[in-house]
Design a protein around this nucleic acid. Structure first.
Length: 440
DNA sequence: TCTGGGGTCCTAGGACCC
DNA sequence: TCTGGGGTCCTAGGACCC
């Protein structure tokens, strides 16, 4: 049997940890740039606030209902997530961290599976303060569906201690009820397009999909949806992945706080993202060979413009100078005057292990020596930034000249493109200056 | 005025090989 | 006049996930 643990309203629950005043009140958390609603408390859901709704559209509704708004604080949520995952890993041998607030784990050889999961849920609540739900079933797809239903449906909600829900579907009437109460669009692996197709073919819920002709699905929509059908029938197609696979691409991009026209300001945003992306590659101890830069205006803009370009280096690199030089050239080639840009980003891909790098035949210098110098220099940057704070040592750029002048004001430098984050709570657990003070 | 960020996998079609 | 059979690799685009 496979279990899926999912933290209840995770980002909102995190915000409530250090601010008990938020408990019992409607709370929402916004996406980056304070754009959309991405987490809602039960009270906010009851008001009818939808997931993914743009903030500006429902501002008055939020105000009228006294909904408390928070900007997202990913370093904080990430830290809380790690604590939860570590509790699971301490107790169980096969844990797959599936997302910031979800984990699959194997329950083979465990006899009282439900009791075990109730213990886990209670332990997590006690140690971290985060309420969770755990669905247990034969396959990942069924565990996902179970988890969703026990959170939403009154028949199962709060069946165990203090907001945490746990259920194993082993009785057939439970399974039938859960399948029939799951619309196709709520099945893991079925998105907008597939649900339209399924409904046209009179397949409306998980039970219908389970009972339908598997070959028809395979022929029309391919192997992925066929696997979903099989998983609904209890045949495992997706297995628990214990080892974290090596990343295939690393992307850093942000929407700008204000729309940008000038090349220089876009360039100064890209230089920051490039440094972040390159340092992520180094953390993974990899070299990258392919660099992509993309630039776009808002989708809602009349003159919508989006473009991207990719360059493949002769040799994989970790050298920030090489990556930036390439990225800058790519940006130049896609930038056009007179557009109101909303976002720029960089994607690094085709990663190579540091030990096995195909070197160029045509370079004149001793390649090995050059590579070693690259590694030493980049390590030095990482060490200095590790000690004195991220971004202390970084690439200089023409636009940054003022940084060294007397009137240096970092805030003004960045304000043109820096994203909005007007409702941000402190980084309680990841920043020394934000650690809460207890007065006794 | 204002609409997130970061990923993965699959498929079809083109280009190429012997 | 008439033109095979069996592959691989790469890429762009689509669909999905949280």
């Amino acid at each position: 049997m496979i279990a899926l643990l999912d933290c209840n309203n995770f980002y909102v629950s995190c915000e409530r940890l250090f601010n008990p005043r938020l408990i019992g009140k409607p709370v929402v958390v916004l996406s980056n740039n304070d754009g959309c609603i991405i987490s809602r408390s039960d009270e906010a859901k009851e008001i009818g606030i939808k997931m993914g709704e743009p903030f500006f559209k429902i501002r008055s509704t939020l105000l009228n209902n006294k909904v408390i708004v928070r900007s997202s604080n990913y370093s904080f949520y990430g830290d809380i997530s790690n604590r939860i995952m570590n509790i699971l890993k301490e107790d169980l041998s096969e844990v797959e961290v599936y997302s910031i607030d979800e984990a699959f784990f194997n329950l083979k050889k465990i006899q009282n599976r439900e009791d075990k999961c109730i213990d886990l849920a209670n332990k997590i609540l006690k140690w971290t303060g985060i309420p969770v739900s755990i669905g247990i079933a034969k396959t990942k797809t069924l565990a996902k569906i179970t988890n969703r239903v026990i959170k939403k449906n009154k028949r199962y909600k709060n069946i165990s201690f203090n907001y945490s829900n746990v259920l194993e579907v082993n009785k057939s009437d439970d399974l039938l009820y859960i399948l029939k109460n799951t619309e196709v669009e709520d099945i893991w692996g079925v998105g907008k397009k597939l649900s339209i197709f399924l409904k046209k073919n009179n397949i409306n819920n998980a039970h219908d999909l389970k009972e339908c002709d598997e070959n028809f699905i395979r022929k029309e929509k391919g192997v992925v949806l066929q696997r979903t059908v099989l998983e609904l029938r209890g045949t495992k197609c997706n297995y628990i992945q214990i080892t974290v696979p090596i990343k295939k691409s690393i992307c850093v991009s942000r929407s700008f706080g204000n729309k940008l026209i000038s090349y220089d300001s876009i360039r100064s945003a890209l230089i920051v993202y490039t440094q972040k992306a390159a340092s992520k590659v180094r953390v993974n101890n990899l070299f990258c060979r392919v660099i992509t830069v993309f630039l776009k205006t808002s989708r809602y803009e009349k003159n919508f413009y989006a473009n991207s370009k990719t360059y493949t280096l002769i040799e994989p690199t970790i050298d920030l100078r090489v990556i930036w030089k390439t990225a800058e050239n790519l940006l130049k080639s896609i930038y056009k005057n007179h557009h109101l840009y909303s976002k720029v980003g960089i994607i690094l891909s085709e990663f190579h292990d540091a030990k096995f790098i195909q070197q160029s035949l045509i370079k004149s210098k001793c390649n090995l020596e050059v590579k070693n110098n690259e590694i030493i220099l980049m390590k030095l940057i990482d060490d200095i930034n590790g000690r004195f704070g991220y971004g202390k040592l970084r690439l200089s750029s023409d636009c940054d000249k003022n940084f060294f002048s007397k009137e240096n004001n970092k805030k003004d430098q960045n304000s043109a493109w820096q994203m909005k984050s007007n409702y941000r709570s402190p980084c309680y657990t990841t920043s020394w200056c934000d650690i809460p003070i207890v007065k006794v």
